[in-house]
């Protein structure tokens, strides 16, 4: 009996102390880590259309169309299909694609979750966290070329 009563006392203690652990979401936005990976932001000005992000993407989320001069025409990203691994950001030599902290996006159909380059450009920062700044100390580690061949196209 003592064990049962101890258990019941524990839950009653939690009931009476009035502490809540859950967050009232829309009113109270959660703090996210500066490293959190949300919707991408794309900068056409920076992009050199090297297509490394498209190559590294594990499940073909990024789709790039270039003309015969290798000038970029389209940059589409299916954020509903993306697994948020951040490899595109990691391989990008010019920080043209970044993962913001923004995790709030909706769409009624799958089509609405395919973002083109304009939509990707206008993705807002989450709580004004600049991902680039928070990631600066580690950039050296990601873009180390290694000893092997570098397969830029």
């Amino acid at each position: 009996m003592i064990g049962i009563l101890k258990g019941m006392a524990t839950t009653m203690k939690h009931a009476l102390d009035g502490e809540k652990f859950t967050v009232q979401y829309p009113e109270e936005t959660p703090e996210v880590s500066a490293r959190f990976r949300g919707v991408h932001k794309f900068s056409q000005e920076r992009c050199i259309w090297c297509r490394q992000c498209e190559n590294v993407c594990p499940n073909d989320t990024i789709h790039i169309v270039t003309d015969d001069q290798r000038q970029g025409e389209e940059y589409n990203l299916h954020i509903g299909q993306c697994i948020y691994c951040r490899l595109c950001e990691e391989v990008c030599p010019v920080d043209a694609i970044l993962l913001t902290q923004n995790f709030e996006f909706t769409g009624d159909t799958k089509d609405e979750l395919v973002y083109n380059k304009e939509q990707l450009k206008s993705v807002p920062w989450y709580k004004d966290i600049d991902p680039l700044e928070s990631r600066e100390p580690d950039r050296g580690a990601w873009i180390g070329e290694g000893d092997g061949e570098v397969d830029y196209q």
Binding site: T11, H14, A15, E19, K20, T22, Q24
Partner: peptide, 13 residues
């Protein structure tokens, strides 16, 4: 409400 109080949650608010 009672279950939520025992489990440190908000409920039905």
């Amino acid at each position: 409400k009672i279950t939520a109080a025992f489990t440190d949650r908000y409920a039905a608010n």
